[in-house]
Write a protein that binds this DNA or RNA. Structure first.
Lengths: 197, 197
DNA sequence: CACCAAAATTGATCACCGTTCAATAAAATT
DNA sequence: AATTTTATTGAACGGTGATCAATTTTGGTG
């Protein structure tokens, strides 16, 4: 109650996002609530609404942080990669998702209450992540047209995403599949080989 | 208020699932509530719980109906298909999802409260749908080993699913992609061509 | 027909959710 | 020290999934 000296506004934002993400990682999106995050950081629910305006605002901030960490994870792996950077990229994609399953799923399962598109600052973060992928596909197809390159990159992200979703939703284990990462990588390699003509 | 003569137990089940699915298709999973379904059919919330036991039970029944309709849609399309049955299958997959976006998304975004697996009768319905796909892949790869065939079918479903999810979540339109169905079909054809050696 | 046990239906009730906002406490300014 | 501005609070509101004693309807029995 009345703790303006404890945290500045930006410290408070960081605290809420950090602890909110921790809470999300523990309980998952379905059981996640703004009230529990407020309890966790020792502030009231009202303060949380002062900072992020709404539940959607909070989730957007949390998901943005997850996207940023995901992009950083991919860049780290690529920086330490051997020659096969495509394999590093696909494995890094899966690795982050399986290491942070509930936070990762929340990126896709949270939808704005009004059904509209995410704000520009959020889309910019998503675009940065996509940029990492496009860069690697471009490096492997140096003679491809920019438009075709973008379309292929999106299709390959969709391909890997599909395998990843089924892994986390346990659709694969339900059906007996054990190595969806390798399957995803195989699909990506086939597509790149076909694009090379 | 006491309407046992209006509907038998099985009629009531069918009524709830049908109107529940309609409600779901209108408002989407996030705004879907058992109370609104009860209002819609003119019964109390208590009756709904008598019939399906819980919110999860209701959603399971609704999603099972969606899966059944989806499988029927694919079989119809395949029955009227020309020679290119793989294209028919992929297009049928997309077609059903884009025709019933909110019900289709609910299949994947609803998770049981206890986090456990779906009951056997539900998994059997999902397996039947998968069987349609496996059958078509098998027809196109007559010399493939059964294990490899299953693994490939799962991977191709994951591939198409990824493109379909991105289409409905508007991730593609956000990024400018207009023809994800064709991209998915291209990926599937590449994989089948590679499997043929 | 009247009676009653069994079954179905109801909706008030509970704890929890996102959200609001008047009241309060703290900080900044004068 | 007094006053204005800002941050924080938590009770209150309408909604949710879930429960269950009370009620109504049904089907059977004498």
């Amino acid at each position: 109650m009345g703790r303006r000296s404890d945290h500045s506004r930006s410290e408070l934002e960081a605290l809420i996002v950090t602890e909110g993400r921790r809470q999300l990682a523990e309980v998952g999106l379905a059981r996640f609530s703004a009230r529990d995050v407020a309890k966790r950081i020792g502030y009231s629910i009202g303060t949380l609404y002062n900072v992020f305006g709404s539940y959607d605002g909070l989730m957007l901030a949390i998901n943005a942080r997850t996207l940023t960490l995901w992009a950083a994870h991919l860049r780290e792996r690529l920086a330490a990669s051997g020659e096969d950077r495509i394999a590093t990229l696909v494995r890094g994609y899966f690795e982050f998702a399986t290491d942070n399953p509930k936070a990762w799923i929340a990126i896709y399962e949270h939808h704005l209450a009004d059904g509209g598109a995410a704000p520009d600052w959020y889309q910019a973060i998503a675009a940065d992540l996509m940029g990492v992928v496009v860069g690697e596909i471009a490096a492997v197809l140096p003679e491809a047209e920019p438009d075709a390159l973008l379309a292929l990159a999106r299709s390959l992200v969709a391909t890997v995403h599909g395998h990843c979703v089924f892994t986390l939703y346990m659709t694969f284990s339900m059906l007996g599949e054990t190595a969806p990462v390798d399957a995803a990588l195989t699909r990506v390699r086939e597509a790149i080989a076909a694009a090379r003509g």
